[in-house]
Design a protein around this nucleic acid. Structure first.
Lengths: 236, 236
DNA sequence: ACCTGAACACCGTTCAAGT
DNA sequence: ACCTGAACACCGTTCAAGT
């Protein structure tokens, strides 16, 4: 990480902080990543930047724009990571690879889901990512409507699942002091349900108890992609 | 709607409001439905109930619990609506019906997605809905792991897509005064993109321009369910 | 047992004043 | 052109006091 703030000395008297849009957005993402959504406060951000609250408004019109730009900042990384992953012979494989990278970015940042593609002007990378997902589907040569629906479905599934899983309490191992009423409690509660009334839950509790989020995501994604492949094959 | 508040006169002097958990949660949902997420304020809610802010804390431990209970309150309606829709010969059709009803409830209430199944103790209806979705998949006789994955995938897709679409600006017709920079602007912007750099977006803009959320949702759901059906058929 | 409302510790946002 | 920080209008939450 490079220096994000520069304090200029004028004589020996006072100093003024000097920011930039990149510094503001970068520190916002850092705050979000380190301490979660609630920690992103104009006061906390100003303290981190070493300046006053008001300065932030010079670069950003308000909190909505700040978070929208923070989202886009993260997506730049997803774009970089999937740069080379789109030339395989099977378009569906490429689509899967981009979706997985996208999922990883969002599941560790549940706030991102709610802001993705909300304001195109502030989120050029979101548009590029949407386009990249779409270009893989384009190679299946479906009609425009089916192409649109397929890409929308993948996006909806990725964002929805990621935000959902990202918000759930971490699996075992948890933080020291407070066990957080986590997954274990839920499993215990579900094991005790009446098998007559809750046959499904009783059928899957043990799977739920040992499941891993990333695997669960991939399994669902594969169902969706299988459906898509089927549709593409029918098309021919 | 029945009377939700009762003011008891003691002599001719003063009056005290009298609430109940159902009244508190019911008015919270009404506030949410009428004016959106930002309108749910303890002060606004207290005013609606005709009492003081502090009283609400007698029924609910804080805002998180309030919204969790509000979510569950809405899900009671979804359960009622899908009561009879689960006896058809095709389990996948039943799964689809429940998913569609769920989608409709969430897409008009984007706040619901973030709270669904967050606290099982406060959300018995969420558990019942999860169970109901699961029971349909159970009839496909997949192994526990695949069953779990399939239900998780449907839930993730429903919640994600619904919350996402629910948050997007309404299609044309919009509110009087402010056009809201809506869908039309987005379409105009996308029509102007370079076809070399954005072949996918250019390929689907016109579909996007005329699309309906519910149809888009159903198309993606059908892809997912086609994948699931394929998996179930392979199983035999 | 339940309701009240002032008080507290926070927010995001504004703006006159500075450099 | 950019930064400052007190001030404003709001929040959720607490709690001593009431009935």
């Amino acid at each position: 990480m490079a220096e994000t703030r520069s304090t200029a000395r004028t004589g020996g008297s006072r100093q003024r902080a000097s920011h930039s849009l990149e510094a503001v957005v970068g520190e916002a993402v850092a705050l979000l990543d380190e301490d979660g959504e609630a920690a992103l406060t104009f006061r906390a951000l100003a303290a981190r930047l070493g300046g006053g609250v008001g300065s932030i408004y010079w670069y950003v019109s308000g909190k909505d724009e700040l978070v929208a730009r923070a989202s886009d900042h993260v997506l730049a990384g997803v774009l970089a990571d999937t740069e080379g992953a789109t030339g395989s012979p099977d378009p569906v494989d490429d689509l899967r690879a981009v979706a997985v990278a996208f999922f990883e970015a969002v599941s560790s940042r549940p706030w991102l889901g709610a802001y993705f593609l909300r304001d195109v002007d502030l989120q050029p990378n979101a548009v590029l990512l949407y386009e990249r997902l779409g270009q893989q589907v384009l190679r299946l040569h479906l009609p425009p409507r089916e192409t649109f629906h397929a890409v929308s479905a993948v996006m909806g599934y990725v964002i929805g699942t990621a935000a959902d899983l990202g918000r759930r309490p971490e699996a075992a191992g948890g933080d020291a002091a407070e066990p957080e009423r986590g997954l274990d409690d839920l499993v215990a509660h579900w094991r005790g349900l009446d098998p007559e009334q809750f046959p499904f839950i009783r059928h899957v509790v043990e799977e739920f108890a040992v499941h891993e989020d990333a695997e669960q995501f991939r399994a669902g994604l594969d169902l969706l992609l299988a459906g898509l492949r089927l549709q593409a094959d029918r098309q021919r």
